Amino acid sequence: MYLLLVDDDGRLTRLLDHLLRQAGHTVDVAHDGRVAAALMAQGDYDLLVLDWMLPHEAGISLCQRARAEGFEGGILMLTARDALEDRLEGFAAGADDYLLKPFEPEELLARLEALGRRACRPLSQRCLQVGGWTLECDDRRVIHGERSVALTLREFQLLELLMRRAGHSVPRELIYERLWGRDQAVTDNALDATLRLLRRKLERVAARQPIETLRGLGYRFTDEA
């Protein structure tokens, strides 16, 4: 799943970002409401994890904004506010679930998995389609025509990122951040190896592979490659 995690606690977001990536999810992180709103406008997220109290714009306002703009994915609110009135306000704003701080990270993961299963998302959001290519997000499989191939976690995360931004260049720096996280020490060889293996798999199901190298810019997914 593609998640937006919004919390101004840097230590907590680093921990959750790591756990979510280890569980196979793609994660964007924001530490204030202004940045979160900008990411929400650009990203096609499956789930939002919103802290209630945030600089610049509160999580409850972001929740209301998302629903007003037609967001149909799951929204989980994080907060230390445990009054019934607060919980009711969160649900009225469009939240699907509510987790009180402090919490165990494993409980958050379990709640997100449950939200992902029942969130009202159209089928197209579980399958990314660009031209003749289809990425099955549930079982990490890419399809072209009548042929398909399974992907490893890293291959899937890389292809998902490129397909979500099809037609646009994706810098190497962004790929490192999305696949491995800001705090992970990763060599250039890790990305090069993942990309090489992914391209080979794509060539198995089609006479060509759709990932272009843009020198000095990064990579681009195009069905015309």
Rank of each mutant, 00 (worst) to 15 (best):
A92M: 08
L84P: 02
I75L: 09
T79S: 06
L100E: 02
G90H: 03
D82K: 00
Q125R: 13
I75Y: 14
L115F: 13
S124V: 09
D82G: 14
I75Q: 04
K101N: 12
P122W: 04
L88G: 12
A80S: 15
P102W: 01
E107Q: 10
R118Q: 01
K101G: 14
A92W: 05
A93C: 12
G116S: 05
L100F: 08
E104S: 15
L84F: 03
A119S: 09
L99A: 08
E106W: 07
R121M: 11
L112A: 05
E104I: 10
A95S: 12
L78Q: 06
R117I: 00
A114F: 01
G94R: 06
A95I: 12
S124M: 10
P105K: 00
L100S: 09
E113S: 13
I75V: 12
R111P: 14
L99C: 06
G116D: 04
D96K: 11
R111V: 14
T79Y: 00
L123W: 03
D96M: 07
L88S: 13
L78I: 04
D97E: 13
E89F: 13
D97Y: 00
A114Y: 04
L123H: 05
A93T: 06
R111F: 09
C120D: 12
I75K: 05
D82F: 00
A92V: 01
P105E: 05
E106P: 00
L109F: 13
D86V: 13
D97A: 05
L88E: 15
D86A: 10
D96C: 06
R87S: 13
A93F: 08
F103C: 04
Y98C: 14
A95M: 07
F91A: 01
P102N: 05
L112G: 01
D86N: 14
G94V: 12
A119F: 03
A92R: 13
E113L: 03
E104F: 01
P105I: 02
G116Y: 04
R121S: 04
D97S: 07
A92E: 11
Q125M: 08
A114P: 04
L100Q: 04
E107L: 08
Y98V: 07
R111N: 10
Q125A: 03
L100V: 14
A80M: 10
L112K: 03
R117S: 00
L123K: 09
G94S: 08
P102R: 03
E113F: 02
P122V: 09
Q125I: 08
R87W: 08
E107F: 01
P102D: 07
M77V: 15
D86G: 09
R81F: 11
L100Y: 04
L115E: 08
A92F: 07
P122F: 04
L84G: 02
T79V: 07
F103S: 10
F103N: 11
E89A: 15
I75E: 07
P105D: 02
G94D: 11
L112R: 03
L108S: 03
L76H: 10
A93I: 09
P122T: 15
A119Y: 02
P105Y: 02
I75D: 06
Y98H: 13
G90A: 15
A92Q: 13
R111H: 10
D86Y: 05
L115P: 14
P105A: 02
M77W: 11
L108M: 14
D97F: 00
G116Q: 04
L100G: 08
T79R: 00
Q125W: 12
R111D: 07
A92N: 11
E85G: 08
G74L: 08
L109R: 01
L115C: 06
D82E: 11
P105T: 00
L99I: 12
